[in-house]
Simulated assay, not measured.
Amino acid sequence: TFEKMLPVLTMMGRRILHTGDLGSASVLKVMTNYLATVNLISVCEALVTSKAAGMDLNTTFEAIKISSGNSFVHETESQVILNGSRDISFTMDLVLKDIGLFQEIAETHGVPLEISPLINKIFADGIERFGSRELSPNIIKRLEEATGLDITAPGFPTEMEDDEPEEPGYEIVPQGRA
């Protein structure tokens, strides 16, 4: 049972959430990957629009980081986008697989999505232009090409850095169940 596995799981991961029946974790993983992808596209659009409006990208990064627009994707992927390496060790074909699975789940359950089909179309176009094994943050190249802008800035790392302190893992209990 989950309770018996919890001590082992907390040694392997930082936050442990019992998601329910077999397969429920897979659905949630697809959903969270979809959200990260939507956020990546919105971050790309924000960075390109800021540059087009004449904003300094270092200042833009910090403004987003301290605002309501901040996110894990911004704090990590924006840095490697601005560095120019765009290296998160995740490729466009993997993104398209995940967001396609999200779309399938929604369709299976009769959910009429509007953003998901557009995100799927954007990444399909990215793969057609740049190849399936292109790093996923390079989806920004679609906007760089359309605008002629270079979305890089000095002082950002070449790889995503995990600065979360090491600590023993612990169980997350959903709100309303504590």
Rank of each mutant, 00 (worst) to 15 (best):
G100M: 15
S78G: 11
G110L: 14
G23L: 05
C44S: 11
P117L: 00
T76S: 09
K141Q: 07
E75Q: 12
A53K: 14
Y34P: 01
F72C: 05
V38S: 12
R86N: 03
I127A: 10
E161N: 09
E104T: 08
T1A: 15
P117A: 00
F90I: 00
T76L: 03
F102L: 04
T1W: 15
S71P: 04
E134P: 02
G84Q: 13
S68C: 02
P165C: 06
A106Q: 13
P168Q: 11
G23A: 04
M12Q: 11
I127D: 04
F72M: 14
Y34H: 04
K141W: 05
L6S: 01
T1N: 15
L82Q: 08
K141R: 15
K4H: 10
L9T: 09
A63Y: 12
K121H: 00
G20E: 05
Q79I: 00
F156G: 08
D56F: 09
G13T: 12
V73P: 01
A146D: 13
I105T: 09
I81P: 00
I151P: 07
S26C: 13
V43N: 06
P174D: 10
L94H: 02
T37C: 01
I81N: 00
R177I: 07
E45G: 04
L82K: 01
D56I: 08
T152F: 06
T152E: 09
G69R: 14
E134G: 02
V73A: 09
L94D: 01
G126K: 10
E161W: 10
K141S: 02
L6E: 05
S26E: 15
S42K: 15
M5W: 08
T76M: 06
R129K: 09
T59K: 14
T10Y: 04
L35E: 10
P7E: 05
S85T: 13
A25L: 13
I140W: 01
E134K: 06
D21M: 11
I139H: 06
G131C: 08
L57M: 02
T147N: 04
M11Y: 07
Q103R: 06
N138H: 10
P137D: 02
V95T: 06
E171P: 09
L17V: 08
V8W: 13
M92N: 02
P157G: 07
T76F: 08
M11T: 09
S71K: 07
G54R: 13
S50K: 13
K29I: 11
T108E: 09
K97V: 02
G155D: 02
S132M: 12
A63F: 13
K121N: 05
R86P: 03
S71T: 04
V73I: 11
L96Y: 05
S67N: 07
P7D: 02
F102T: 03
P168T: 11
V27H: 03
S116Y: 03
V173R: 13
E171M: 08
T59H: 10
V43T: 14
E171T: 13
L47F: 01
A124H: 12
